[in-house]
Amino acid sequence: MSAPVKSQEFFVDPARLASGRWCHTRDRQIGEGDISASYSADKIAEGRVRSPFKWQNALWVSVGGASIGNQRAVQAYRIIERKFFNGRAITYHENARMSAAALGRPEGFYHGMTVKWGKLDCVLVGPAAIFLPSEEKAAPEQADMFDLL
Score class of each variant (00 low, 15 high):
Met1Arg: 08
Ser2Trp: 11
Ala3Asn: 11
Val5Glu: 09
Glu9Ala: 09
Phe11Gly: 00
Val12Asn: 04
Val12Ile: 08
Val12His: 03
Asp13Gly: 03
Asp13Tyr: 11
Ala15Arg: 15
Arg16Tyr: 06
Ser19Phe: 11
Arg21Phe: 14
His24Leu: 09
Arg26His: 13
Asp27Asn: 13
Asp27Phe: 07
Arg28Ala: 13
Gln29Ile: 15
Gly31Thr: 08
Ile35Asp: 03
Tyr39Gly: 01
Ser40Gly: 10
Ala41Tyr: 06
Ala41Met: 05
Ala41Arg: 06
Lys43Gln: 15
Ala45Ser: 15
Arg48Gln: 14
Arg48Trp: 15
Arg48Glu: 14
Val49Glu: 07
Arg50Cys: 13
Arg50Gln: 12
Pro52Asn: 07
Phe53Tyr: 10
Phe53Val: 06
Phe53Ile: 05
Trp55Val: 01
Ala66Val: 03
Asn70Met: 10
Gln71Trp: 01
Gln71Cys: 04
Gln71Asn: 12
Arg72Phe: 03
Ala76Ile: 01
Tyr77Ala: 01
Glu81Trp: 08
Phe85Pro: 00
Asn86Trp: 02
Asn86Asp: 14
Asn86Leu: 12
Arg88Asp: 05
Ala89Lys: 08
Thr91Ser: 15
Asn95Arg: 10
Asn95Ser: 12
Asn95Ala: 09
Ala96Tyr: 07
Pro106Ile: 01
Pro106Tyr: 05
Gly108Met: 04
Phe109Val: 03
Gly112Leu: 07
Gly112Pro: 07
Met113Gln: 05
Lys119Gly: 07
Asp121His: 15
Cys122Pro: 10
Val123Tyr: 08
Val123Phe: 07
Val123Leu: 11
Leu124Ser: 01
Val125Trp: 09
Val125Asn: 05
Ile130Asn: 07
Ile130Tyr: 08
Leu132Arg: 15
Pro133Arg: 06
Glu136Arg: 14
Ala138Ser: 12
Ala139Tyr: 04
Gln142Asn: 15
Asp144Ala: 11
Asp147Met: 12
Leu148Gly: 00
